[in-house]
């Protein structure tokens, strides 16, 4: 393609992302440094470009770290971050343990079944996230199906509170993010040459040892991708803890939501977002690198 054609093709998505993805972050950072007191736009300070150097100086001197000071001083925020990281870590581990056998089973199923099975795993992912979380409320609520079944089986005597607990959050997370774990795992497992396992067996490995010595190490890229695809969004998850979790300890996504919608404290909400991004920037960059590497392998 000619240069101008290439440039035209690149220009639109590039400009779009600069405007709607990158620029907003700059604004978030700026708002997070604004005065907490003023809850309505325009925010102080305003960068007055017409005032030249003086305007710039005035702008920077008026920036405030108040919002960040609040984040550090009030333990609610710290606890919220910790809870998010814990939930994300535990959920990701459960997802890996649950998802690996499924991905493995699909990858080792007869070839002509595989597209169907993969589609079966993907299909729930195409239905609404909200619906999937909501489906669990039907099951987990006090007069829901789970209590009903357990009581009929005489496992429990009285209805238990399943909703509004960490258990419910974990169930919701595992349920909602399972396809994100299974698909990248499947993609790497499916590519593993079966003769490698024959070779391992030929060289004296039992099937189990062959799995640990050959299949598992070769599936590490899939594990990394799956873990990142689940861990990063779960840290900032809002819907699942909001609908299934308790209101006692909030995950950071909920805290941000509350600060913004209930307290209307935009600078603090922005500061939470900036800090969250700071925590996640390393895994996000790792994920981006992984994707880019994969792409460059084909060039």
């Amino acid at each position: 393609m000619r240069l101008w054609q290439r440039r035209a093709i690149l220009l639109f998505p590039y400009a779009w992302l600069l405007l709607f993805f990158l620029a907003p972050f700059v604004i978030v950072v700026k708002i997070s440094l604004s005065q907490t007191a003023i809850a309505q736009p325009p925010y102080v300070p305003v960068l007055d470009v017409s005032a030249g150097w003086a305007g710039l100086e005035g702008f920077f001197s008026a920036l405030s770290l108040d919002a960040y000071r609040l984040l550090v001083s009030d333990p609610i925020y710290l606890l919220s971050y910790l809870k998010s990281l814990t939930v994300a870590a535990v959920s990701t581990v459960i997802l890996l343990v649950v998802g690996y056998p499924i991905a493995y089973g699909v990858a080792r199923s007869p070839r002509h079944w595989q597209p169907l099975l993969v589609m079966a795993v993907v299909l729930p992912f195409w239905t609404s996230f909200l619906i999937r979380v909501y489906a669990w409320i039907n099951i987990l609520q006090r007069d829901g199906l789970l209590n009903d079944i357990l009581m009929r089986l005489h496992i429990i005597a009285a209805p238990q509170a399943w909703l509004a607990s960490d258990t419910a959050i974990y169930i919701g997370m595992v349920y909602s993010y399972l396809p994100f774990m299974v698909l990248p795992l499947y993609a790497t497992l499916e590519k593993i040459d079966m003769t490698l396992l024959e070779a391992a067996s030929d060289l004296g490995c039992t099937p189990l040892r062959a799995f640990w010595r050959v299949t598992f190490p070769l599936s590490v890229p899939g594990i990394t991708a799956g873990v990142l695809l689940c861990f990063i969004p779960i840290v900032g998850e809002f819907v699942i803890p909001d609908l299934l979790g308790s209101s006692e300890s909030l995950m950071i996504g909920q805290t941000l939501w509350t600060e913004f919608f209930a307290n209307r404290d935009w600078p603090v909400a922005s500061a939470i977002a900036v800090t969250l991004l700071g925590i996640l920037v390393a895994p996000i960059m790792l994920y981006e690198r992984l994707q880019r590497r994969q792409l460059e392998m084909f060039e």
Binding site: D193, T195, L196, E198, A199, A200, D202, L203, V214
Partner: peptide, 10 residues
């Protein structure tokens, strides 16, 4: 032991 056609090296 077997030497595989595509070698099947790990």
């Amino acid at each position: 032991n077997m030497m595989f056609q595509n070698y099947a090296l790990f």
